[in-house]
Every structure is written in C-alpha cells, then in structure tokens.
Amino acid sequence: MDGFSSILSNIHAAPIIGSVDYKSFVPIDLSKNNADLTTNRLESPQEFENYIKEYLEQNNAKVAYGGYLEERKLYQRSSIFNNNETAERSIHIGMDLWIKAETTINCPIDGEIHSFKNNTGLGDYGPTLILKHIVKNEVFYTLYGHLSLKSITNLSLGTILKKGEKLATLGYASENGNYAPHLHFQIIKNIEDHWGDYPGVCSKDTVDFYAENCPNPNLILKINKT
C-alpha cells in the first residue's frame, strides 16, 4: 500500500448514508458478465431501478454498493462514453451506492466545497459536488455525482463542511443523467483543472492512470469492514 492509500485507510469516516447501517449494505455485480442485465434494463432507468429494488429485497438489504474498476455495458447507450472518435470508456472508477431518490448523503470527512456543476446529458453525472480535503498534509478531493438539483443550489465555494454533516440528497432519473437513483462516490488525488466534473469512467488504455489517481473509495468508506 502506497503512502496516499495508507493515509486514506486510516481515516475514520462518518457513514455516508447515515440513516442506514453498513450491515444493511450488499455488494452488487453490474459488470458486463452479469447476464441479468438485459438491454432493456440497461437502457431504461425505471427497469434498472426495478432491478435494483428486487435485488435489495432478495438480499434483505437497503443499499447495493460496488463498481470500482468494474467493466460495464451500461455506458454503451451514451455517446459520452462511446463516440467512435476516442477509445470506448467502460471501466467505472468510483463506487456506486444504489438506493432510492431523495436519500440524504452525509459528508464522510471534513472538507470544503471545491466546485459544483450540473453535468447535463444522457449518462452524465447530473448535479455534481466536489470537496477538497487535507489530511496529514495530503491534499485530495472527493466527488459526489447524481445528486438532486436542489443539492447544488445556493452553495458557496470554500464553504467548510464537517464530518457527518448533511451534504446532499440523491436525484431522480430526470435530473441525474437518466440513471436509476444512486450516488457515485470517487476519490481524486490530482484534480488538475477540472471544475465540478471529473471522469468517472475510463477506457482500458487509461485504467492504470486512473486507478492510481482515483484509488478505491472503500479505503475511506470501509463498507465491507464492519
């Protein structure tokens, strides 16, 4: 484990969905190898939401999580990831937490608002918030995508948010990039000049770079270590 990953793994974060105990989280496979993900389920937010709901009921869980470095077919529906001009992007570099819209998302660690933006378009993040953190003199960022539009209304850059404080709520498909409701959570070491946005899906030929710059979000969340 490198120095940055070690710092992240030693952070004692607040539950990112404070209303749900991590014991009620269940891992989910949304990779290209999941035969249950039919074309209709992948293209229809409502069908996908029904699939998630059924999966949670079958597993007696409230939140389905996972997706880091998972190769998915989900993005083939959008030209954002598959435009025939650049390498197809299909590898997810954040963690998704699948739960109903309007769920409250809490700030896992102290931070300040770096930027926010409504990234519109099929398959994009929709309302997105990025926080800046400094831990043991290490500067890094966390990204929260697929939020409700009201979550990024009346925000101010530089506002300090404390661990455990309400951060946002999740958006419906109509505002979150046309996905079933969920949170995309991602760690970013070097954000460069990105503002209110950062790639959450990469191509196979760039995965080494993004895996280094965006380490496993579970280093902070520790969902499966409780």
Rank of each mutant, 00 (worst) to 15 (best):
F4W: 13
L8E: 03
H12F: 07
H12N: 14
I16Y: 03
I17N: 04
G18C: 00
K23N: 09
I28E: 07
L30C: 09
K32N: 08
N33P: 00
A35T: 14
L37D: 02
T39S: 12
L42M: 10
P45D: 08
N50H: 09
Y51K: 09
E54Q: 13
L56E: 05
A61S: 15
K62A: 01
L69E: 11
S78E: 07
F81M: 01
A87F: 14
S90Y: 11
L97Y: 13
I99W: 07
I99M: 01
I105K: 00
N106M: 00
P108D: 11
N118Q: 11
G126N: 11
L129N: 10
K132D: 07
V135T: 12
V135W: 12
N137C: 06
E138P: 01
V139E: 15
L143N: 13
Y144H: 06
S151G: 03
T153M: 09
N154P: 01
N154S: 09
G158A: 02
I160Y: 10
I160V: 15
L161Y: 15
G164E: 11
T169S: 04
G177C: 04
I188Q: 01
K189P: 06
E192S: 15
W195I: 01
G196W: 11
P199S: 12
K204A: 12
D205Q: 12
A211P: 09
P217H: 14
N218C: 00
N224A: 03
K225W: 05
K225C: 10
T226L: 11
